[in-house]
């Protein structure tokens, strides 16, 4: 059986699973909607991979990333747990070895990673505002009654993109409506929106960063041809969109899992049988002090796997048999 490494990226909008081989070739990718239920979605993803996993491959290591990386790591038995910034940088550097700039726009967040000499040297992530991320494009496509898949293609038909205010999604929407009521064509408006979002991204997230090529554009929004064109125009150079642009976080997690297993020798993976296990979470307010921290407890078949959420570490450290992940 062939040795593979599993990368799992559980984000706010999507959950991605990726299998890579020892040479870091991507064998399988899976894109699922998280729909607010990370544990269920991870189990669902694993059961979709169960067939290939039991017949052709042997999982030699698992890595998790994304905002639910710690939860997923406990459930699945991960060898590497990494933040999504590092995971994205690792994946981009693997696919495009001389990459210098990574633009990443996902469902709720956007980031820029500057890589010099193969090492991340700077990054930024959107702070309080999610304007210009995938969710906003989704919402605008729905308002205009255009399937999101065709949204970007439409922008390419624009002859004269109109100027849309991009600082805030509320302003952008009212500006779009004004332009549409004035009689501007749909492609021009959509292309204008893409340019506004790119402008907003470069001014906020990319503020003060030196964008040198090769530039890699990844994350779910890289599927949008209009956004790709707007970026090309704004940074005045070609942009590389990797084949598996939507699951790059998971690819990075898989690579990091391979490195972790090489260091420590074996995997913590629970095996696909975990699909059949009962995982339950419970939360309670600690009454130890005035902070009343919200503590979360993760159980597998009535056995406590992990606890977190307490500021002082009283609950987190109370378990002696917690598996060490790292």
């Amino acid at each position: 059986m062939m040795k593979v490494y599993l990368g799992v990226d559980v984000g706010s909008v999507s959950t991605n699973l990726v299998l890579i081989d020892e040479q870091r070739k991507i064998l399988h990718t899976l894109y699922l909607r998280t729909q607010g239920q990370p544990i269920r979605t991870v189990k669902q993803g694993l059961s979709r991979l169960e067939n290939v996993l039991s017949q052709q491959y042997q999982v030699a290591g698992v890595g998790t990333t994304g905002s639910a990386r710690n939860l997923t790591a406990v459930i699945i038995g991960a060898d590497a747990v990494k933040n999504e910034i590092t995971a994205h940088a690792v994946a981009a550097a693997q696919i495009v070895p001389d990459v210098q700039t990574v633009l990443e726009i996902g469902g709720q967040d956007s980031k820029i990673i500057i890589i010099r000499n193969g090492v991340a040297s700077d990054f930024a992530m959107n702070t309080v505002c999610a304007a210009g991320t995938g969710s906003f494009l989704d919402q605008q496509a729905a308002r205009l009654g255009i399937p999101i898949e065709e949204f970007g293609e439409l922008a390419l038909k624009a002859e004269h993109p109109v100027r849309i205010a991009g600082r805030c999604s509320v302003f952008a929407e009212s500006d779009m409506i004004h332009k549409q009521q004035m009689g501007h064509g749909m492609p021009d408006i959509i292309a204008g929106l893409c340019e506004a979002l790119v402008r907003n991204y470069l001014n906020n997230v990319g503020k003060g960063k030196e964008i040198l090529g090769p530039v890699v554009f990844q994350g779910g929004v890289a599927a949008n041809a209009g956004m790709r064109q707007a970026f090309r125009k704004a940074v005045k150079q070609d942009i590389v969109v990797p084949k598996h642009f939507g699951v790059m976080g998971a690819v990075g997690a898989a690579i990091l899992a391979q490195e972790a297993v090489q260091r420590k020798g074996s995997t913590n993976f629970r095996g696909t049988s975990l699909i059949k296990q009962e995982f339950a979470t419970r939360s309670f307010d600690c009454s130890g002090c005035a902070n009343s921290c919200e503590v979360v407890e993760i159980n597998m078949n009535d056995q406590v796997l992990a606890r977190w959420g307490d500021r002082c570490g009283k609950w987190e450290n109370s378990l002696t048999n917690v598996e060490k992940i790292g």
Partner: peptide
């Protein structure tokens, strides 16, 4: 997330 990425860097 930001602190971890920063330290990784």
């Amino acid at each position: 997330t930001r602190l971890e990425a920063f330290w990784d860097m």
